[in-house]
């Protein structure tokens, strides 16, 4: 059996397990409800903004949005993103900000839970350890991506229902934003799987994963404050700017960085997992 087939079987089981477990169902429900609530709030804020700027034309509002986005993303990208429904863009930013929390909660016991009860021993006589590890990583990424897609779907429907965007605009921009969240999610899943797999106690895995995420964020903030740009590269969310770029080279840079993160952490994790005693 080739390693890909092994990974496929492990991923299939991870999806079944996560979407059937109480923890998985609660987290999914919370994510969807939270997403829906946030969307409604954003739509309400949007409506308030419109009302307070009732004397401005749509073109003027667009120009204000473009100016604002240009300050964050640069002129060209600001212009490009100004066409997107604002709620969807804000939802993407919220998703990638909250994503690590969801990833940590969803994946902390993926491997450590199996190590704690030694259930992993049923697998390691049947699959290469590296396949098992990669399967766990891809499984956690697939779960997060599926939930994020469902969340996006809720947002699109609510946005269309409130008349804030057309179906074409929702699908076109919404799908693009969801795709942007995938490589960033992969990077976080890679880090979470690597950290969590080092421990046999799931609770310890969770705490250390949170701590690791916090340290990464802290390094990013310190880098930003002190002007050391290289420090900011350690934070996967940093690459959203690149991933949102209409320029192919910028996009490729962001994609490469995120997938590089995911690949490097997974390769390291799989190497350690292959050599350790279970």
């Amino acid at each position: 059996m080739n390693p890909l087939a092994e990974v496929g079987l492990i991923v299939g089981r991870e999806l079944r397990k996560n979407f059937r477990s109480i923890k998985g169902l609660i987290l999914c429900a919370l994510a969807l409800l939270g997403g829906f609530g946030t969307t409604m709030l954003l739509l309400w804020v949007e409506k308030m903004k419109r009302q307070s700027a009732a004397d401005l034309s749509l073109d003027q509002l667009h120009a204000i949005r473009e100016a604002g986005l240009s300050k964050v993303y640069g002129e060209e990208q600001g212009k490009y993103l100004a066409d997107a429904p604002e709620v969807l863009l804000l939802m993407l930013l919220i998703t990638i900000w909250v994503g690590p929390l969801f990833i940590a909660l969803m994946g902390f016991d993926g491997i450590s839970g199996e190590l704690q009860h030694r259930s992993v021993r049923y697998w390691t006589v049947r699959t290469r350890r590296a396949s098992f590890y990669v399967g766990k990583f891809v499984g956690s990424w697939a779960v997060v991506s599926t939930v994020t897609f469902a969340l996006n779907l809720v947002v699109w429907i609510a946005t269309m229902a409130r008349g804030e965007a057309t179906l074409a605009s929702c699908v076109s921009w919404g799908l693009r934003f969801w795709l942007v969240s995938l490589p960033i999610g992969a990077a976080w899943c890679g880090i979470a799987t690597l950290v969590a797999s080092q421990f046999r106690t799931p609770m310890l895995s969770l705490l250390v994963t949170f701590a690791a995420f916090f340290v990464i964020w802290l390094v990013y903030v310190i880098g930003g404050v002190t002007g050391r740009a290289w420090m900011m590269h350690i934070y996967p969310n940093y690459y959203d700017v690149y991933l949102l770029s209409p320029k192919l080279d910028q996009f490729a840079k962001g994609l490469g960085a995120c997938l590089g993160f995911a690949g490097a952490t997974t390769a390291l994790g799989a190497y350690v997992f292959t050599r350790r005693d279970l």
Partner: peptide
Amino acid sequence: VDELRGRLGVLPQDALLPSGD
């Protein structure tokens, strides 16, 4: 593992079965 796949069966001591399965 690939060479021994299906040729080696193991009953580990104290390894819990996955409770949700």
